[in-house]
Design a protein around this nucleic acid. Structure first.
Length: 730
DNA sequence: TTTTACGATATTTTT
DNA sequence: TATCGTAAAA
């Protein structure tokens, strides 16, 4: 077999990785833009074409559906239809497949339903109420992240010993109640997919042996993002015979806060014998300047595996750093940059604007709208996460499984049909007392219990669901949706509402119907009703469905969402201390390093040109900040940076000069002295009678109310009222 | 039971 | 500054 087509397009390091012997483990440290997907797909091709490995003996795992899809497409382009027989998917997708296949051994019901993060949150919230826990004291978010955190470490409620820690005791109560609830409803959340799959390995040696036999080659993408459970799962599956080929970049680990453990990269070489390490350091994406900036920045992190990206390409333009007056002006600057890029012959979809937090997108959107520049925001609400979509899906789930309490609760009085909080509470109480699902409880209460009025409403609802099931039994999937949307009253509710939002919701429902029309089940979903398969795919592939993907648009997204993508022009906005790095990372070295990696990810997205901006003054969460420029700006090599800015005055100068000129009678705004209040500027050295010397790092308010934040040389910073504090400018 | 109004509250989120 | 969720009014 001639395999030159597999090897010729590769550089030396890539070829070394791809052609490693098939009986060793491999760790490929792949820098940004160094061709890691190429290495993975060519490795698949090499195993099959070069080593005679059967495609079905290969398992390739990614984190996102997008990455899986891309790898599948590229593998198919390389080796043709045989790529189809490779098992390729996300961790969650593969776990789902396994559980479908072995639901009985895994202790699940046949029709188990996958719930997404939002469903999970609602469920936990309901449980908190049932347990009569104060939501202010026990935030839902915290409970959810406790549960997921435990599952990601492989722990069930039964494994945890709370000791005498009251916090743990409560969390454990919630976790237990949650487990029960999921078991009753046949619900499986994302972490549960992985945990069950892992337990399946451990508890069913025969099943495990079968898959160990089958998957001789395990390829893993974005290995730095694996959490404890995923890594354990891989280790068990590899057993003594499977061979792992993992690709990752410790410098791009940005999901530590979600349980990802970069340490797995280091541990990998200890956990497995005979691991070959290959570094991919040649970058094919960015200019020399951009790479130099990225390298210099990331060098500020400690404990790296070490890696230096280089390019054979040219240096390119310097990185522009723009100092804006405020966030509005920054957004305007972004638009001007876009317009400039277009004038130079570029196109909109070559541009990405990256920010640290979603809240920053709004102003940018408004500015782009004003400038009539088409844009698309990534992240945010995804199609299958929209409320109207989830409403319909909840009805459908109820048709499949009456005991799905989360769905029952979601649609019981939606659209409003006169089943109020009191009646709902009755149903819940009855369910709890008798260990029933909400559906069963409602059934019983309709028989005896409930007021006449409530009984009518509830029995009407029960009848509606039964009737819908009957009506849908013989219909094709899309018709079923149409029935449900019409007869549930959701459609009428939206049509009645003439607002623009209602209109767009109706459009989304139509999108959903057409998604159902096009839906084709995967092989592993063969034995399940089509509807169940559709629902589970909706949960697993929430992000895949993109509406109107065809006008070229400027792309707006968070830095996290940008990982894995590349754009000729990248703009990173909001480069300010407190925003990026985010406030909570500022005095936490571990978090700070993750922020820096995030900056590294952002920088390395840029192919040709990189622009960064920061604001002297920013309205943020209702407050006015005078932030310092992000430390990440000063960590760039000065020779790579070109500062651009308007005018010469700082925000403080502008703010005061106009006022003091116009209102000379008012001495409190005098720039030299405001009554007894000294004037401070950011960066100003000061001395405090008690705390010693320091530097002003932020200002807030004006006149008598001016507060300054001072970072003292002895460490620590404090907010002080300028008029009151014994503070002296130096 | 539904609507409205006010007050609390703010990262990042592949699945 | 906007959103969201809960609490009081209709």
């Amino acid at each position: 077999m001639d395999v030159s087509f597999l090897l010729n397009p590769l550089n030396d390091a890539q070829r070394e990785a791809v052609t490693l012997p098939e009986d060793v483990h491999a760790l490929v440290l792949a820098g940004a833009g160094s061709g890691k997907t190429r290495v993975l797909t060519h490795r698949i091709g090499w195993l099959i074409e070069g080593c005679g490995v059967q495609p079905w003996n290969i398992l390739a795992v990614t984190f996102t559906n997008k990455a899986a899809g891309e790898m599948r497409a590229r593998a198919a382009a390389l080796i043709g239809p045989r790529a189809q027989s490779v098992t390729l998917g996300t961790f969650h997708g593969i776990a789902y497949q396994l559980l479908r296949q072995h639901w009985r051994e895994a202790g699940l019901i046949e029709n188990f339903q996958v719930i997404d993060a939002d469903d999970q949150k609602r469920l936990v919230k309901r449980l908190l109420r049932e347990l009569e826990l104060d939501e202010a004291q026990w935030p839902v978010r915290q409970a959810v992240s406790f549960i997921n955190g435990q599952k990601e470490e492989g722990r069930r409620a039964a494994h945890i010993d709370p000791g005498h820690d009251p916090y743990l005791e409560t969390m454990l109560r919630i976790y237990r109640a949650y487990e029960e609830q999921c078991a009753r409803g046949g619900l499986v959340d994302f972490a549960e997919l992985l945990l069950r799959a892992h337990e399946l390995w451990l508890k069913q040696p025969a099943v495990l042996a079968h898959y160990q036999q089958r998957f001789r080659h395990l390829l893993v993408d974005e290995f730095q993002d694996t959490n404890t459970l995923q890594y354990a799962w891989l280790r068990v599956l590899a057993g003594g015979t499977g061979r792992l080929f993992v690709v990752g970049d410790d410098d791009q680990s940005i999901y530590g806060w979600r349980g990802a453990r970069v340490e797995h990269i280091q541990r990998f070489t200890e956990d497995f014998a005979d691991v070959r390490v290959v570094r991919l350091e040649q970058n094919y994406r960015s200019t020399g300047t951009i790479l130099k900036a990225a390298n210099t920045l990331i060098a500020h992190n400690s404990g790296r595996l070490g890696k230096n990206l280089w390019t054979a390409g040219e240096a390119g333009e310097p990185i522009e750093v723009y100092r804006a007056f405020n966030e509005l002006e920054e957004a305007d600057f972004v638009c001007r940059q876009v317009e400039h890029w277009l004038e130079e012959g570029g196109s909109r979809d070559e541009i990405a604007v990256l920010y640290r937090s979603n809240a920053q997108s709004r102003l940018l959107e408004q500015a782009l709208l004003r400038h009539r520049i088409p844009y698309r925001v990534y992240g945010g609400l995804r199609f299958y996460e929209r409320a109207e979509i989830k409403d319909v899906l909840a009805y459908l789930r109820l048709l499949v499984n009456r005991n799905d309490d989360a769905s029952f609760e979601r649609v019981l009085n939606n659209p409003p049909r006169g089943i109020g909080a009191r009646t709902q509470e009755q149903i819940r109480r009855h369910a709890r007392q008798h260990g029933l699902s909400l559906w069963q409880a409602a059934r019983q209460l309709v028989e005896n219990g409930l007021s006449a009025r409530a009984r009518g409403a509830v029995s009407g609802f029960l009848a509606l669901i039964d009737e819908l099931e009957r009506a849908c039994a013989e219909l094709p999937l899309a018709q079923q949706l149409i029935e449900v949307i019409a007869r549930s009253g959701l459609q009428a509710q939206l049509e009645k509402d003439r607002s623009e939002q209602a209109q767009s919701k109706l459009e989304n429902l139509n999108e959903l119907i057409s998604a159902a029309e096009q839906f084709r089940p995967e092989p592993e979903d063969e034995d399940v009703p089509l509807l169940t398969a559709f629902l589970n795919r909706a949960a697993l592939e929430a992000g895949e469905h993109q509406a109107d993907a065809h006008t070229p648009c400027v792309q707006l997204m968070t830095l996290h969402a940008a990982k894995g993508l590349e754009f000729p022009l990248v703009m990173m906005v909001g480069m300010e201390e407190g925003l990026f790095p985010t406030q909570s990372a500022i005095d936490d070295p571990v978090k700070l390093e993750e922020e820096r990696r995030l900056a590294y990810v952002g920088i390395t997205r840029a192919q040709k040109k990189l622009v960064m901006s920061w604001c002297e003054k920013r309205r943020w969460q209702g407050r006015e900040l005078y932030p310092m420029p992000s430390r990440f700006l000063s960590e760039l090599p000065p020779e790579c940076v070109k500062e651009v800015r308007l005018g010469g005055r700082t925000a403080a100068e502008r703010d005061f000069s106009g006022v003091s000129g116009g209102f000379s009678g008012r001495s409190d705004f005098d720039p030299v002295k405001m009554g007894e209040t000294p004037l401070f500027a950011i960066g100003q050295r000061v001395r405090h009678a008690k705390f010693g010397e320091g530097i002003v790092i932020a200002l807030e308010g004006s006149g008598e109310q001016t507060r300054v934040q001072v970072h003292f040389d002895q460490g620590g910073s404090k907010w002080l009222l300028a008029a009151m504090a014994p503070l002296e400018a130096l």
